[in-house]
């Protein structure tokens, strides 16, 4: 069932009508989204992967925007991610870091349990003159080192630009974990395979937002589609000054930041 074909996410949410709500709840319920691909590639047709519900992966190219100035550090995103994706305790597909910095350049950073329970008051031991939160997650890099190093083709990039892991092919060597400069990957202690943020692939292909974006009460996290002319993220990326993490690594992250500080890596 395709609910957001020609409607932008924003309009759609504004509508918020009963029908949409019903659709939303129905989205939670059935798991009948097999083979939901329409691809212009002949191979897709041959394999019977043509779309039945209108989701065409060739029509999307996703990007993620984090406005650190809006983040209040509630950690609801981390909690939602953990529940949505069944992330084991002590491992994080997304997390929130807190920075407190003094005039003299002293830096205090922490992320207790990834911020999954929010943040308590802390004493950095100096007088912080600047303080902020930074949500982090997989950057779904365009030139990603993690796919490069996967020896068996278990890590791959989709047409929409997301980096996924096939947990049935993954041998659990951990090379991708070492290769990620952002610490976004881990070996799941239950499946013993590499695990990471998928931008909630199972949600976005059904027209929903990633769980973290939905949970964010301040709009600090935004998910957008660069192939959609009316997309909010696309417009912001086109007009605002944007930062990325560890630009010098040339991995071309697709998580964009507003209000990054030089102390954030």
């Amino acid at each position: 069932m395709k609910i957001m074909d020609n409607v932008s996410r924003r309009e759609f949410l504004k509508d918020g009508c009963k029908l949409a709500s019903a659709c939303m709840i129905l989205n939670v319920l059935p798991i009948k989204i097999p083979n939901a691909f329409a691809s212009d590639e002949a191979s897709a047709t041959q394999a019977g992967l043509e779309a039945k519900d209108g989701y065409n992966w060739g029509n999307h190219y996703y990007a993620y925007l984090i406005d650190t100035r809006k983040c209040i550090g509630c950690g609801m995103c981390v909690q939602a991610c953990s529940r949505e994706n069944n992330v084991p305790d002590g491992f994080f597909r997304t997390w929130v870091e807190r920075y407190e910095i003094s005039e003299r350049g002293e830096v205090f950073v922490d992320s207790p349990h990834g911020g999954i329970n929010g943040f308590e008051a802390t004493n950095p031991g100096f007088n912080a003159t600047k303080a902020f939160f930074v949500p982090k997650m997989c950057n779904h890099c365009e030139h990603t080192p993690c796919i490069q190093v996967c020896p068996v083709g278990a890590s791959y990039a989709t047409k929409e630009g997301m980096v996924l892991v096939d947990s049935e092919r993954c041998v659990g060597c951990g090379y991708c974990v070492q290769a990620c400069p952002y610490g976004s990957r881990f070996i799941n202690p239950i499946t013993h395979t590499a695990d990471k943020c998928t931008w909630c692939y199972h949600r976005i292909t059904k027209g929903l937002k990633p769980a973290c974006v939905q949970a964010c009460p301040t709009g600090a996290r935004k998910f957008g589609d660069l192939k959609d002319e009316h997309d909010e993220v696309r417009k912001i990326l086109a007009s605002e000054r944007i930062g990325i993490l560890q630009a010098e690594k040339l991995t071309k992250p697709k998580c964009y930041y507003i209000g990054l500080d030089k102390e954030v890596r």
């Binding site: 691809s39 083709g153 929903l208």
Partner: peptide
Amino acid sequence: FGQFGFYRGTNLAEQQAKSVVHGGKES
């Protein structure tokens, strides 16, 4: 394997088929 790239093509459908946990306030 190799249908769309150097990976198992059917994994995409498997990834999509995971059940949604959060419904959002509209639900």
